[in-house]
Amino acid sequence: MPPAPLQPQIEAIFNDAQQSLAKHRRCAERLRALQRKADARAFAEALFACIACVLPVFKREPAAERVVEFVVRFLTEAGEDDAGEQDELIGRICLPLLGLSDARDKAVRFRVSQLVGRIMNAMPEEAEVSDDLFVAVEERMLRRCRDKVPVVRACALRALFRLQDPSGPSDAISSELLRMMEHDSSPEVRMAAISTVAPSKPAIR
């Protein structure tokens, strides 16, 4: 008897996860069990299809926010035995998300920036980020730091938190965070920049 299709099984787990934060641990365990039995590429594609359902939602509706919380938890809280496989999965999810970062729909730009930022900052210190992902996050999120929508700019700059190098005088990320801290038109974005920029002599000044 052939195995049940992945997509409907993952959709059922996501449906449970958006109902309550209390269900997230058990939902993550169910999703991890599916992952261990599935082909890595097929699982990533099915998972991304479910994540994509929240991208058009601009309002911070509780159900959508719970999906974001669940995705971040599942991708960043793998056990030691699953760490390498999980790092690879993060790349398979984040790279396609970043490919949508220039979408015309402000909701998509917001959710992409939010998800990528939350995932990057929740990853364990020992997690291995591929060079392709590192470069893509830097390029795409720096671009979104100039977005016309303040909440997109705020999410984008937070996504750059772990990539900044304040010790380098020519670090593009540090320079952009300092610019936003001082000159952005939105108080929300300026406050986000203040809480994100790493301590350095230029930041203190």
Results as ranks from 00 to 15, higher is better:
residue 120 M to P: 13
residue 178 L to M: 05
residue 76 T to E: 04
residue 61 E to I: 02
residue 123 M to D: 08
residue 132 D to H: 12
residue 193 A to H: 10
residue 125 E to V: 07
residue 73 R to V: 07
residue 102 D to T: 14
residue 141 M to F: 09
residue 76 T to G: 05
residue 14 F to Y: 06
residue 112 V to F: 02
residue 17 A to Q: 03
residue 43 F to T: 04
residue 28 A to C: 14
residue 163 L to V: 11
residue 18 Q to I: 13
residue 92 R to Q: 14
residue 83 A to V: 06
residue 117 G to R: 03
residue 12 A to K: 14
residue 176 E to F: 10
residue 165 D to T: 15
residue 131 D to G: 10
residue 6 L to D: 02
residue 158 R to T: 12
residue 144 R to H: 06
residue 25 R to S: 13
residue 76 T to R: 00
residue 158 R to S: 07
residue 83 A to E: 11
residue 140 R to M: 13
residue 59 K to V: 15
residue 27 C to G: 06
residue 180 M to F: 12
residue 51 I to L: 05
residue 130 S to G: 09
residue 87 D to Y: 00
residue 177 L to R: 01
residue 96 P to F: 08
residue 91 G to R: 01
residue 65 E to A: 12
residue 111 R to E: 04
residue 175 S to L: 00
residue 99 G to V: 10
residue 154 A to G: 09
residue 94 C to F: 01
residue 107 A to W: 10
residue 185 S to C: 09
residue 54 V to S: 07
residue 26 R to S: 15
residue 177 L to P: 05
residue 100 L to V: 09
residue 10 I to F: 00
residue 49 A to K: 07
residue 140 R to L: 04
residue 66 R to A: 08
residue 91 G to W: 00
residue 132 D to F: 05
residue 101 S to Y: 00
residue 116 V to E: 03
residue 13 I to K: 02
residue 5 P to N: 05
residue 99 G to W: 00
residue 57 V to F: 02
residue 194 I to G: 09
residue 143 R to Y: 13
residue 2 P to H: 02
residue 65 E to H: 02
residue 107 A to L: 01
residue 14 F to R: 01
residue 112 V to A: 13
residue 103 A to F: 07
residue 180 M to P: 08
residue 145 C to W: 02
residue 58 F to L: 08
residue 64 A to W: 09
residue 102 D to Q: 11
residue 58 F to V: 07
residue 147 D to T: 04
residue 40 A to S: 09
residue 115 L to T: 15
